[in-house]
Amino acid sequence: MTSAVLPNSVLANENAFASRRRNQLIIAGLIFAAVAALPRFVTDVYMQNVLILTLMFAALSQSWNILGGYCGQISLGHALYFGVGAYATTVLFVKYGVSPWFGMLAGGAMSAVLALALGWPCFRLKGHYFSIATIVIAEIGLLLVHNWDYLGGALGIQWPFGPDNWATLQFARDKIPYFYFALGLFIVTWLVTYFIEESRWGYWWRAVKDNPEAAASLGVTVFESKMAAAAISAFFTAIGGAFYAAFVAYIDPESVMAFRFSLLMALPAVLGGIGTLWGPAVGAAILIPITEITRSYAGGGGSGLDLIIYGTLIMVVALAKPEGILSIFRRSAKSENAS
């Protein structure tokens, strides 16, 4: 009797699971379509700029979330991978005339290899030791680029002016193509997270995050799992860096490798809900407009008001909603089911 009942209930569970996953995809598709329609309504160039940055940081934070959220390795040095992507694309394009599309992939591959090389020693470190090592490594990268004449040193590299063109990712007159590129990048990182979440890697990462010793005893290859998460995360972070370089058309060490980028990649995920599918997007949608708007309206003249608002926001969310803003909805959904 029981043997007949059990497979049925398992089957029912699996069906429910599959339909929930399918529903998630459909909802995501609708959200992406709604976002894609936004430029029709937002015609102000400044606000378009804010939208582009929001999508870019959503994509970056989604990439950070793979290593920091799912695998639990809090990196505060992702500015390094962002910078590698930006510099690889810029140098290949400006000095050698290589298409930014290729440069982007080259930068991504370089970052992934770099993440593996750095992960090999760093993943032996635990907790705060790991986080501080990532800050230090990114800082070494920043200092080296600063003093590296081939990369333009402290002066940086300017992209040449060219005609608006998808082939060279240059759009001087109309910023909307950048909006679609950033949206595309976000969708790709979302889909990668979506598919990985329920794959073997996804389960392994969460096991490593919750308890590495227990995971190892159950046969999870802890070290390899962390390495895979780091490489995937670094790859997409570098693509984001390449996009940013094309978008601003001028890079220097401070503008692409400063510590605040590492923070800006981690914060949306933390704010929205770390290790969740939608957390980085929700966090970025709140954080980036606030950052940009306070910077332009309250930050004028360096009064510091923007930093006061921004710092207070981070502190309050960290203390009041440790699981991120998304946890508000999850709790209400749970109580609805109960009632």
Binding site: S131, V270, G311, T312, I314, M315, V316, A318, L319
Partner: peptide, 10 residues
Amino acid sequence: IFATFGLAIL
């Protein structure tokens, strides 16, 4: 980490 980071920025 983030509570003290927020404090630092504040």
